[in-house]
Design a binder for these strands. Structure first.
Length: 189
DNA sequence: CCGCTGATAATCT
DNA sequence: GATTATCAGCGGA
């Protein structure tokens, strides 16, 4: 498939920063990601295939959508050289359909519309009904980035295993990150 | 700015 | 019964 996904998932996560994602034309630029795969104790795919995680074991370029803490949806882009690899979308810089996002989110601060995995799914209208769907077919659209941005690197957020792996990536110039990065970010890789 | 807490349901022990 | 790849609201520093 796409050469984008034919590399270690950590590199896929880095390469997705700056790409653009739309659902029914609503979305913006991906500015924060995290990498997971089947050899990673923090990954949903670590314990092998389950009904919930079937999409992670499916083809690259598809969505893996799951419910988090009982109330939020979170979306991954499946892909990477490892088994059952996927990239969690943690933040998007909104560009298109901002009025719709404001209505769905119930607030107008543009910096908080898509700053977090649950928030961006609400803003873009992503639900479990989209689990497993291909991202190159409507309602989805995934566009390559135009230039390689400066990237921030840090440990992943909200996990209790493999907490020191520097597999979280962010766009340095973005004001739309879900949280800050460690100040001494050496582009480890 | 920071930390605490409740909400809520699939999955696991 | 406990845990979880979270968020919003609150109160205190």
């Amino acid at each position: 498939m796409s050469a984008l996904f034919d590399r270690p998932v950590v590199e896929v996560a880095r390469a997705l920063v700056g790409c653009r994602l739309f659902v029914d034309g609503i979305g913006g630029m991906i500015v924060e990601t995290e990498a997971y795969h089947a050899g990673d104790p923090a990954s949903h795919s670590f314990v092998g295939p389950r009904p919930r995680t079937a999409a992670m074991f499916g083809p690259p370029g598809h969505a893996y959508v799951y419910r988090s803490y009982g109330l939020h949806w979170c979306m991954n882009i499946v892909g990477g050289a490892e088994t059952a690899a996927a990239v969690l979308l943690r933040a998007i810089a909104p560009t298109d359909g901002i009025e719709t996002m404001i209505a769905r989110r119930g607030l107008s601060d543009p910096r908080l519309l898509c700053a977090g995995p649950g928030r961006l799914c609400t803003a873009l209208g992503i639900t479990g009904a989209m689990d497993g769907l291909p991202l190159d077919v409507a309602p989805f659209a995934l566009l390559p980035r135009e230039a390689e941005p400066d990237i921030l690197v840090g440990p992943r957020i909200g996990i209790s295993k493999a907490v020191d792996e520097p597999w979280r990536f962010g766009m340095k110039a973005s004001r739309f990150l879900s949280r800050g990065f460690p100040s001494n970010n050496k582009a480890a890789l």
